[in-house]
Design a protein around this nucleic acid. Structure first.
Lengths: 330, 330
DNA sequence: TAGAGTAGCTAAATCGTTTTAGCAACGCAA
DNA sequence: TTGCGTTGCTAAAACGATTTAGCTACTCTA
């Protein structure tokens, strides 16, 4: 590949053929159009030697198809979204798609802009972990296939793939109760999001099942960030009459905040304080305290989202994927 | 935005103007071309009401500029690369760029394909944490601005931004020695990569400074994965005559593997075993043992990489960015 | 030797922008 | 009345691919 990047025209000129012929050959339609096998070989060799790589923008323009997908997540340093993004990228890559990624930082404005941009780039599909509980994307959804992940916006028309958050929380709380805990506190994320609502509902359901009265005093909400987890923990521990002896955090980020607060105030985690969290993390295995967790099936979510967008066979447009309880029992 | 997605022509037709005029107006060149302010207002309003979003593929084709950048990293679930990607995405977004992301899984083949694809998409720049120590990308580098991050390929012509790995390792080892450790073992990553070489060199330099003889028996290499860390730990602990009492891992992934091995075999980390690692992680604060670390300045690396690619003013094309020692002293 | 069939290829339109070069209409000065 | 300057806009080419419709030159058959 010397000189300037080769395009169809140059290859055609060098081969003393038309652009049409070269294009057909390089798109494996040579036989179909009865191009002489000798010619085909010649062109393929020529293209290779000149390092020809078709201009995908021209291609996309003409074909009205970009082979790209857009992914909007709140935060790549959040392990759950990192796993999800990785799995989605892998699925997309295997399917011959390139992906655009944007971190919204859970800002509705960034999210809106990102989606407008991606639409402008004519992505073939859009995957959004949206901070907007009412989808403000209706305009775009009409023009580009969209699937919501993790969070499920209200409104009947959307396509979404989430974990079964209700079941996950229920499973974990049930496990805690089974282990003798009855005084279980709840630290949650953004009140409007389906993840928050469903996980809280699961928590309540588990309490109800064991006839433990629900106590609103033991529940708190904030953002899905460690800072919020920290603040909520601080507030909870200040509450009268009793301090929590068992805390369930609705996300790993929240858990991290709680840990940070406890660490700062008590140094180590008291033996009589049980923590449990939604979302798993490899490092949970190494903490000085055993933390049972609910592991989401990122690979399944990513796969399902990809299929919902571009699978040939009509795929499920709405799915609740079973998470897995990790008890971390001795 | 009803009906089909509007394009320039439709807006022009609706406004009873030419595409030229509409294009000029929407690109803020109305005044420059003396388009009547009234007309401008009218067109802007019309475009907004129809939800006009210019087809970026057409735009890119014409302008020979896509306002996109490509990012190739080994693994998004690796906290370091997650942080780096997040910071790079943010920098790019602020600069008006969209980014394509690919996880290479440290596979040379995936990396090669990804770069070819990104080149085909005419990205305006390429950021690669390359697994290939000799850059196999020379062909593409000639045609698209490329900057290598984290790892520095051999060859004088490349542009790269890395942490000062030598200094980082030196700092940490020096700290350990200062704390009385002399028997420090080294668990490393892929031998060919500059990160491995530089961190090992830093380790050696610190030993030399304190006149501690270098012992090749205490050094081992593998992949930059937790699995490799696990295996290396297993091998080291089996070595005669002595077991390690202090281990330095050259990356967080390796550290994770070592932890996993120790956890599995000993349950908890023995009080007389000191661990230390390159790369920081928020959860290091919560382990049952204090692990000093070297924190890389992801934001600075990302910023520098972005500038090297698209900054108006000529930016540094090679930088070694100072990392920070986190001692985690009581 | 005409007609049909086939092998092998191509001209030109098209996708939706940007941008160059310039046009029509008007006012004004000489 | 001519010429010039200005205002306000536009026609058409270009970017690099894909694709439709069809062309030329053979060969074969009757």
């Amino acid at each position: 590949m010397a000189g300037s990047p080769a395009n169809l025209e140059e290859i055609a000129k060098a081969a003393r053929l038309s652009k049409t012929t070269v294009s057909l050959i390089l798109n494996d339609k040579g036989d179909q159009y009865r191009i002489n096998p000798k010619t085909q070989e010649r062109v393929v060799a020529l293209a290779r030697s000149r390092g020809y790589a078709p201009n995908q923008n021209a291609r996309s323009l003409r074909m009205d198809k970009t082979q790209t997908l857009g992914l909007v997540v709140p935060d790549l340093t959040n392990y759950f979204f990192a796993e999800l993004s990785k799995a989605f990228e892998a699925a997309a890559r295997r399917g011959g798609f390139e992906i655009f990624i944007t971190c919204s930082d859970d800002s509705a404005e960034i999210e809106r802009n990102a989606i407008r941009n991606l639409y402008s780039r004519k992505v073939d599909g859009l995957v959004v972990a949206s901070v907007a509980s009412e989808s403000a994307l209706a305009d775009y959804e009409a023009h580009v296939p969209t699937v919501f992940i993790d969070r499920q916006p209200s409104g009947r028309q959307h396509s979404w793939i989430t974990s079964d958050n209700h079941a996950g929380a229920r499973l974990l709380i049930d496990h805690l109760i089974g282990a003798g805990k009855r005084d279980i506190w709840y630290i949650g994320g953004l009140k409007g999001l389906s993840t928050s609502k469903d996980r809280l509902a699961g928590y309540k359901a588990a309490l109800a099942k064991h006839r433990i009265p629900f106590d609103a005093q033991r529940v708190s909400h904030g953002a899905f960030t460690w800072e919020s987890g920290y603040q909520q923990a601080k507030a909870l521990f200040a509450r009268k009459p009793a301090s929590p002896t068992c805390i369930f955090t609705a996300s790993f980020t929240l858990f991290e905040g709680v840990m940070r607060y406890i660490q700062e105030t008590r140094r180590w985690i008291p033996a009589d304080l049980q923590l449990a969290t939604f979302d798993d993390h490899p490092l949970l295995d190494f903490l000085s305290t055993r933390v049972p967790s609910v592991q989401q099936d990122c690979a399944a979510i990513a796969e399902a989202a990809f299929n919902a967008l571009v699978s040939a066979k009509a795929a499920e447009r709405r799915m609740r994927i079973a998470p897995r309880l990790i008890t971390r029992e001795p």
